[in-house]
Amino acid sequence: MKKTSSTIRDVAAAAGVSVTTVSKFINHAQRFSPPVEARVQAAIDELGYRSNPLARSMITGETRTIGLAILDILNPHFTSIVKGANRVALQHDYTLLLVDTEESQDHEQVLIEALAQRVDGVIVSSRMPEQSVQWMLELHKPVVLFGRNHHFPIPSVGTDSYLASYMLARHLLNQGHRSIAYVGFGQSRWNNERIRGVQACLAEQGLSASVYDAQAASPQGGERACSSIMLGPNRPDAVICYNDLIALGFIKAARALGFSLPQDVSIAGFDNVPYGEYASPALTTVDLQSEKMGEIAMLKLIDALAGKNDTEYSLLEPRLVVRDSTMRRAGASASEDASAARAIPIRKGTSR
């Protein structure tokens, strides 16, 4: 009959070996002869023994836990990152410990420092400027970042924000749009790159985008920004939003104001969040491969824990996903649109 609370001493007695031998066996700290290992494993199975993670960490110095700091658990982009990271963690016998910094630079450092004390390494999505993260090197734990850091040798992974926004702007130009607005989120490290991509694309046609700030990377931020843009003197015929959440809020507010979408204005975003496909109209977006980003970040951290000193930045390819929230305006030829499809990686109406 199995005991419900067997101890390591019980296993040692049943197997006829020392407690030290059992400890080294279950923590993979030493190999023993096949007969000894067989006896220990048989005793573990018979007694139903389960190792204590805390005791194990005291012996090995490892928690088998990875910390992941994200900016907003309500944003599906970050939940997809968590999903990808967790999948790889489970495959390598690690547990994920999550911290939501709630888009607050004021809270980031305190929360991440506390997280680092409980885990073997940390993966971080941060709003802090690149030059302000030197303290992460002083955590004495492996760190992986989302987004390239040019100032410090920290492994990182991300998507080309410049190319992603250039692709959206090119798509809208090829649909005949000429008055294009960009609704950004100034606190983001990637916002300037997205502005730069949009402006570079429009400049090729002698145009420039009107730039606005949503104040929050959320549907509420998009709603609040909509009226001043759509009811102002320079109403755009297309709007690129910093992310899908802002775009979905913008769509809701524009419809409430009486605009028909996409007939009156085309709307697009970034991230390819799962329910963007089910909005009305379905949202044109750029897939930033969020789950893949989480997977790669976790693999980088596991490599760092294994002693691989690799500070490479892994760059993922953005993919344009065309749906019903953008449409060709009068004067745009089908040949122009076909040319754009050949030049830019486009996924028609697909989800992540």
Rank of each mutant, 00 (worst) to 15 (best):
K3D: 07
K3V: 08
S5W: 09
S6T: 09
G16C: 00
S18H: 09
V19I: 11
T21G: 01
V22K: 07
I26K: 01
I26V: 12
A29E: 10
R31T: 12
P34A: 03
P35K: 03
P35V: 00
V40I: 10
V40S: 01
I44R: 03
I44W: 04
D45C: 01
R56N: 01
I59Y: 07
I59W: 00
T65N: 11
L68I: 06
A69W: 13
I73H: 01
P76Y: 08
H77M: 11
T79W: 06
V82D: 01
N86F: 01
A89G: 02
A89L: 03
H92D: 07
H92Q: 12
Y94M: 00
Y94S: 00
L96P: 04
L98H: 02
L98V: 07
S104D: 12
D106V: 14
H107P: 01
Q109V: 13
I112F: 05
A114Y: 05
A116D: 05
Q117D: 12
G121F: 01
E130R: 12
Q131Y: 11
V133Q: 13
V133M: 13
Q134C: 12
E138P: 00
L139A: 10
H140V: 07
K141A: 00
F146L: 08
R148I: 11
N149T: 01
N149I: 03
H150P: 15
H151N: 15
I154T: 05
G158K: 01
D160E: 06
D160H: 04
D160G: 02
S165G: 11
Q175A: 10
G176P: 05
H177A: 06
F185S: 03
F185Y: 14
E193A: 15
E193Y: 15
R194V: 02
R194M: 00
I195K: 11
C201V: 08
E204T: 14
Q205N: 14
L207D: 10
A209C: 04
S210Y: 08
Y212A: 04
Y212Q: 05
D213N: 10
A214H: 07
A217S: 13
G222A: 09
G222D: 06
E223L: 14
E223K: 12
A225L: 04
S227G: 12
N234Q: 15
D237E: 09
A238H: 04
A247C: 05
G249Y: 00
F250I: 09
S260Y: 13
L261P: 05
A268I: 12
G269N: 05
V273Y: 02
E277H: 09
A279V: 09
L283G: 08
L283E: 04
L288K: 08
S290N: 13
K292L: 14
K292F: 07
M293T: 15
M298N: 01
L299N: 08
A304E: 02
A306L: 09
A306C: 09
G307I: 04
N309R: 14
E312Y: 11
R319W: 10
L320D: 03
V322I: 15
T326G: 07
R329Q: 13
R329M: 10
E336N: 12
S339A: 15
A340S: 15
R342Y: 08
P345T: 03
P345Q: 04
I346N: 02
T350A: 11
R352M: 11
